[in-house]
Amino acid sequence: MELIRIADVQKTYKNGVVALYDFNLSIKKGEFVFIIGASGSGKSTLIKMLYRAEKPEKGSIIIGGINVAKLKDRKVYILRRKIGVVFQDFKLLPKLTVFENVAFAMEVFGCDKNEIQKRVMQVLDLVGLKHKVRQYPNQLSGGEQQRVVIARAIVNKPKLLICDEPTGNLDPDTSMEIMKVLDNINRMGTTVIMATHDRDIVNRMQKRVIVIEEGKLVKDYERGQYYHESIKNY
């Protein structure tokens, strides 16, 4: 079943830079997709459009039946409640504990306290941080902080998890731990889209890989293909 359909999308920034051009992409439910490309290739723009931080000027982006391209500012929350987003720079609230940071995402729905308590502990267990619930973000390592962000992103059981270079600030070992967590989440049925620079990770994970160059989709490798071809090319 198709979860995301991107058709004829074009995005030009105000300064005239064309970030994406004539872009088409379809992603099925339950897939794990890497998006790779050099800095300035339009990869971040694509990711931002998926969670409607940017709006395309042409084309349509349908995510789970919502046309994100036409979504009004005050209706953005409807999309955001169906997806989870993970960033390179974490975006945690420093004055809240680990538990509160994750619970925050449930509180905006007006969830019941017991329900929040139960679910937050469940996801913190899933990312392996059950023992650090009372700590503050600055008492955690980078990898741990990123796991809190992932916990926050999946606490509302989203259909889609969008990750914008989640391992960008982490060392290789920690990165692999994060990838294991993401892979686990994917195995439980959540579609994962991840933008990254890290070729090593992409090679090891053996997933579908989309390559963007100068705003265009230049290659779409099926599961397991990327590793072999990259050996040839690089």
């Binding site: 005050r74 955001r80 975006k91 609230l93 925050f104 995402a105 905006v108 729905f109 926050r152």
Partner: peptide, 8 residues
């Protein structure tokens, strides 16, 4: 962050 996690 409130907007990101789906607060209206």
């Amino acid at each position: 962050i409130m907007r990101l996690v789906g607060a209206s």
